[in-house]
Design a protein around this nucleic acid. Structure first.
Length: 622
RNA sequence: GCGCCUGUAGCUCAGUUGGAUAGAGCAUCGGCCUUCUAAGCCGGCGGUCGCAGGUUCGACUCCUGCCAGGCGCGCCA
């Protein structure tokens, strides 16, 4: 469940599982932007006085190209129609009405009527002082004023190790949680352990049969069971803990069971389906047999198996630098009676009914395609039923916004969960689902039941956490990702993470060199020297650093950590270019050296801050 | 069949929520290390933004239709 599967290519967008991004207005905008807005507001008031035209929202954007200045506005284009004048004429009038400002070096009208602002370099130089003063907090909003949000992610089934698809959800979830926490949200991260239901029985039986094999019994593992090698390890763990206590003769285990059918090679689809059904029946019979033969021992095997699998998952996540505030157990939720309570709440509202021996919920009344089963005719709760209760539990714990990070194959599942939440809370927008698109491997298919897949652990061990995380986060999460395993494993210099890390390492090396030469540097002197930063390369760095806070908010608002990745690549590029053209350690001009050291120190800080959002380290040496 | 999504350089992907001449990495071609790490820098080549209409000052972006591909449509999880 919740798995990010990794089959064929697939690229749907979040669609229904998408709520409006949090408002950006409550955040402090880049100060220069505010300043320009003030200027334009004054100009507009003058221009529009005596007309019927109301003042439009003033949009100011960073320019795409330095030749267009630093900021641009399309106000004149928007006002051309209501004012009945050509855009360029409006622009000229606007510029004429602009109050004077010591920060603005030049204003130009360009193209169809854009107004471009060229700022004084001094306006940018102060960014360095800001960054150095704020350090790790630069760009962050730790106020928590956006609200409380719970992010549930990974939630991989404890029936096997995580594969590369889960890795994507883990990297995304961890990063979006960090991003939200850095932009004014109070964040709680949770992993939902699906330790109830039939799949856990399948796990127990799969382990038991491997255990029997290890004890010397001759019998095959079920075709629809979990076949992976990891099951053998778990079986060994059971044997370690319990010895031969669960040994039963193969003949006794298999006596009277239906056949574990297999479809012939050229079988039709119908024949294959029939075989599949028979295999499932066989598995069910085997589960019943295990329970009756083992008694309490069955639960012991299951318990050990679950712990073993969960332990593997926890180790992988720890290695992957992913942490949770809470691991919530589905079984515990059921055992506590909370699921029953949730069902009663639904029943009290008249939202459930019985039909064909099953208990249904009226999800269709809340926008779902059809009603859904909560309790099956055999008395077992559906996955949806327990999950519904879990979501109610989250809301009850005072987390009014719930983000769920799911694999894209869960698209059709969103409507019913949202329906359930709306039915119980009358809140339509509490659930924010982010669907993570499939991961395809450059070679081979994967899946737990095939027993043949690349685990996330393998990937981390070979490519490293930094490279793996960066690779995942380089693609937009709502875009299908082709994972080039060979590239990731090769640790070649092509890996984009090195480009960014290298920029940081280079900066650190400069300060090492400074120390080796017996040079000194301090923030006060450096800040006083900032007026010496006047080259194009320096301007580029200053501009980019100034955009960092805004970029973070944009990334958080769109739930796109990859925005941070692309920003960091740009920042690293600006640093590398600068590094190749100018020297920072200039002995014969201490003031210039101070200014440049301040600039690269600030750049290093922003690189660190950004990489921290991604959960990627910023090495001092490479 | 119905619903949702995707289509951008040879490959892998961005594209600031409608802005100016559509960008980056890889690949390929050519330059740059006696100087803070060449895991780097600078430049060249490379495009009918799937196709056709529409909306407007302006469209990769919004709307409609079509083509191609994917996912979902269980008393599975």
């Amino acid at each position: 469940m919740r798995a990010i599967l990794a089959h064929g290519p697939y690229n749907p967008r979040p669609g229904a599982g998408f709520i409006a991004p949090p408002s950006l207005d409550r955040h402090r905008r880049f100060a220069m932007k505010t300043h320009l807005q003030d200027l334009l507001t004054a100009a507009l008031d003058q221009l529009l006085a005596g007309t019927e035209v109301t003042r439009p929202a003033i949009g100011i954007d960073a320019t795409k190209d330095a030749k267009f200045g630093d900021f641009q506005t399309n106000l004149a284009l928007q006002l051309a129609k209501p004012l009945g004048k050509p855009p360029r004429a409006v622009a000229e009038a606007l510029v004429k009405a602009l109050p004077a400002s010591s920060h603005v070096a030049k204003v130009e009208i360009a193209g169809p009527g854009f107004i471009n602002f060229f700022l004084q370099q001094a306006a940018f130089q102060t960014i360095v002082a800001d960054v150095l003063a704020q350090g790790d907090r630069y760009g962050r909003d730790d106020s928590g004023t956006q609200g409380r949000i719970m992010v549930e992610f990974v939630s991989a089934n404890p029936t096997g190790p995580m594969h590369v698809g889960h890795g994507r959800g883990a990297a995304y979830g961890d990063s979006i949680a960090k991003l939200l926490a850095a932009t004014g949200w109070t964040v709680w991260r949770e992993y939902y352990i699906n330790d109830a239901g039939r799949q856990v029985d399948v796990l127990a039986v799969s382990v038991w049969l491997r255990y029997l094999q290890a004890c010397g019994e001759t019998l095959d593992v079920p075709r629809r069971g979990y076949p992976g090698e990891y099951i053998k390890k778990t079986a060994a763990a059971v044997r370690e803990a319990h010895g031969d206590a669960f040994l039963r003769p193969a003949a006794e285990v298999l006596a009277g069971l239906p056949p574990d059918a297999v479809a012939a090679d050229g079988a039709s689809d119908a024949e294959k389906d029939a075989a599949k059904i028979q295999q499932e029946r066989y598995l069910d019979a085997l589960i019943e047999r295990a329970k009756s033969l083992l008694g309490d021992g069955y639960a012991a095997i299951q318990h050990t198996a679950l712990n073993d699998q969960l332990g593997v998952i926890k180790k992988t996540l720890a290695d992957f630098n992913v942490g949770f505030d809470q691991w919530s157990s589905e079984k515990a939720l059921v055992d506590s009676g909370f699921v029953q309570k949730a069902l009663k709440r639904l029943a009290d509202k008249g939202l459930t009914y019985e039909q064909d021996g099953a208990l249904w919920m009226r999800t269709e009344a809340f926008g779902d395609e059809k009603d859904r089963v909560l309790v099956k005719a055999d008395g077992a709760a559906t996955y949806f039923c327990n999950d519904l209760a879990y979501h109610v539990d989250k809301l009850d714990r005072n987390w009014p916004v719930l983000m769920d990070v799911w694999g894209a194959d869960h698209h059709g599942y969103i409507a019913r969960v949202r329906a359930a939440i709306e039915a119980l809370t009358e809140r339509k927008d509490a659930l924010n689902v982010q669907l993570i698109q499939f991961v395809t491997l450059s070679s081979g298919r994967m899946g737990k039941r095939s027993g043949n897949f690349v685990t996330l652990q393998d990937l981390i061990d070979e490519a490293g956490t930094d490279a793996t995380r960066f690779f995942y986060l380089t693609r937009s999460h709502d875009q299908h990702l082709e994972f080039d395993i060979d590239l990731a494993r090769s640790q070649s210099n092509d890996n984009p993470v090195y480009y960014v890390q290298y920029a940081h390492a280079r900066i650190c090396r400069v300060f090492e060199q400074l120390a080796e030469k017996g040079g000194r540097w301090n923030t006060a002197d450096a800040t006083a020297a900032l007026h010496r930063l006047d080259t194009e390369h320096e301007k580029a760095l200053l501009t980019l650093m100034g955009r960092y806070p805004e970029m973070l908010r944009k990334a958080a608002g769109a739930y796109t950590p990859h925005t941070v990745v692309f920003y960091l690549k740009d920042l690293a590029e600006a640093l590398h270019s600068y590094y190749n053209v100018h020297r920072f350690l200039v002995d014969d001009d201490v003031e210039l050296q101070n200014a440049r050291l301040a600039l690269v120190a600030a750049t290093g800080q922003v690189l660190r801050n950004g990489l921290a959002i991604l959960g990627v380290s910023a090495p001092e040496k490479m």
